[in-house]
Each structure stands twice: as C-alpha cells, then as structure tokens.
C-alpha cells in the first residue's frame, strides 16, 4: 500500500453567496506528507471535507486513485473510497454518549486497514481510559482520541484537519512522534491542515497554501524555505533593486526601507545589492506564509 493520489479539477464549493473553494486545480502525490496551510476561512476544511466525501463538490470534481483503489474514483457516496479516506476534524466527530471502547469498535468495522494493537498502544500513551464515555473526556483527550482513530485507521489517505488544536504541547509532540513512526512503517498519503506553520513544517514534504479558496502556491516545503528574501537599506536603492521582482511586502522607517521579495536572487543581484550597501536576509517559512496570505498581498502564484 502506497497511499492514494488526489486530483481536483476546477473544484468549486459555495455556501450561499460565499465562495469557499474557487476553481481549485490541485494534485497531491501519493505516499507523501502534505501540509495544507491557510488562514481561517481560506477553504482548508471545505477541501478536507470534499476529499473525504463528506460534501459534494458544487462545480468540478475530486478524483482519488492508486493504492488498492486502482483507477480514479470520486469519493462522494462511494463507500469503497470513503472507507479508505480518514478525515479527523477538531471536533473528532465522536459519539458523545458512547464509551471510548465502542468508538474503537466502530472504527475497526469501518476501516479495512485498522490496526487494533496500534490503537491500544496509542490510547495508553495518551492516557485515554477505554471505559470512559466520550463526553466525560477533557477537550485535550477528545482531540487525542481523534488522533488515535486517525492513526490506527492506517487509511491510504489520512487527513488531520486541525485535529490537534485542543491538545497541549507534550500531547502534540506525542502525536508528531507517533505519526512519523507509523508513517515510516506504513507509508501513506497524509494531509495535515494547520496554521501552526513553524511547529508542523519540519514534518512535511510538500505544502499547499490556500487563500480565499484559491491555490496560492504548491511546492516541496524545503524549496520554499529560503525562497524569500528581505532587502533593507536606503529607500531609493531598495526600490531600484527590487524593480521587476515579486515584492510581497514593504515597510518604511524614515529613509530606510525593507522589502520582502519572493524568488531566488541570482548572484549578480546579490553583488549589486551588497555594493549599494543593502542588506539581504533570508525570510522564514512562517513569515513567507504570512506575506503570501496577507489580505493586502499582491495577487497570484509567482
């Protein structure tokens, strides 16, 4: 089992007059850990729900393929596909009145690759009591239970949609460790939807950044690191140098200006900047994310 590949064509979802996903064309390669980044309301959760077949696309379509599915199929109203896609949302989608044990039993009956040993081991590590009713668990334990169900399902496409927000830092680290260990053992397609960029990004191979229902950029995460640069110095010199570059943000303090640009600066430009007395510094992933999804950000995929 390698995991499912994802493909969306012109995927559009609207709620009344609000556009949640706006003509999204996306490919997620099978067997990788993808980060789905975006601000609140960017369409991350809607995309996750459509991939899992919880929601029907308004316009366009979603196709999943690979693994033991073979040819591409749409997830909506297709039990064969949805049993292989596990979406864990922050709410956990749990039955409050049921004991933890029953939630595991339900997952075991729905999930073809369910691993009961892994589930038991993870419950111990997160210290979740089997006999307790779900509604008696704290918010953090409920989130942890969701995470356990998501990992032990070993679904060929597993999506965690901010599922770990209710968990404290030590529990989140337990989750990250368990995720990486199990992914190494059973590689599959994993999507982590989050805005905790700096915490999650080392675990990712690819990132998808959404903003207002559109794709801002999709890239291997390591090539996004170091793709931004900040250029600081006398305003006129900064302006001259950044002409023709994709400027994401600008800041002025007196006669000094700081511009954040996207793209690899070639050596000539770097030398030109140095001789003009400008300082060039790298921009971190988190800052790049903030600039790329800022409300006043200049349009498009650069």
């Amino acid at each position: 089992m390698t995991g499912l590949g994802v493909r969306t064509d012109n995927l559009t979802v609207t709620f009344g007059d609000q556009v949640a996903l706006d003509g999204l064309d996306l490919r997620l390669a099978p067997g990788k850990i993808h980060g789905l980044l975006g601000r609140n309301g960017s369409g991350k959760s809607t995309l996750a729900a459509v991939l899992a077949g919880f929601r029907q696309p308004g316009v366009g379509r979603v196709l999943l393929d690979g693994g033991d599915l073979g040819e591409a199929r749409e997830p909506y109203e297709n039990a064969v596909v949805t049993s292989r896609v596990c979406l864990i949302r922050e709410s956990g989608d749990l039955y409050d009145a049921a004991p933890v044990k029953n939630m595991l039993g339900l997952a075991a009956s729905l999930r073809p690759y369910w691993d009961a040993d892994l589930a038991g081991d993870l419950l111990d590590r997160f210290e979740i009591p089997m006999r307790k009713r779900v509604q008696k668990l704290s918010r953090g334990k409920k989130s942890a239970l969701g995470v356990v169900l998501g990992l032990a399902s070993r679904a060929p496409l597993t999506i965690f949609d901010e599922s770990y927000l209710g968990m404290d830092v030590p529990s989140r680290q337990l989750f990250y460790d368990a995720l990486l260990a199990d992914y190494a053992e059973v590689p599959r397609t994993i999507v982590l939807s989050t805005h905790l960029v700096s915490e999650v990004s080392p675990m990712l191979e690819e990132v998808v950044i959404l903003d207002r229902g559109r794709l801002v950029t999709q890239s291997p995460v390591d090539s996004l690191r170091g793709r931004g640069a900040s250029i600081v110095g006398p305003a006129a010199a900064v302006d001259e140098l950044t002409t023709g570059l994709a400027v994401l943000a600008e800041q002025r303090l007196g006669g000094t200006k700081s511009s954040t640009v996207l793209g690899d600066l070639d050596e000539t430009l770097v030398r030109q900047a140095r001789s003009a007395g400008l300082e060039i510094g790298p921009v971190g992933l988190q800052d790049l994310f903030v600039h790329l999804t800022a409300t006043n950000s200049k349009e498009g995929d650069r």
Partner: peptide, 17 residues
Amino acid sequence: TNQYASFYRINPATAAK
C-alpha cells in the same frame, strides 16, 4: 534516515535527501 527523521521530528524524505 528513519531513525534520524523520528529523532529530530522531521520528514523522512527530507532526511533522505
């Protein structure tokens, strides 16, 4: 690479690279 990835909490493909 898998030991390295889990020790430092990073993606195994990144470690492999």
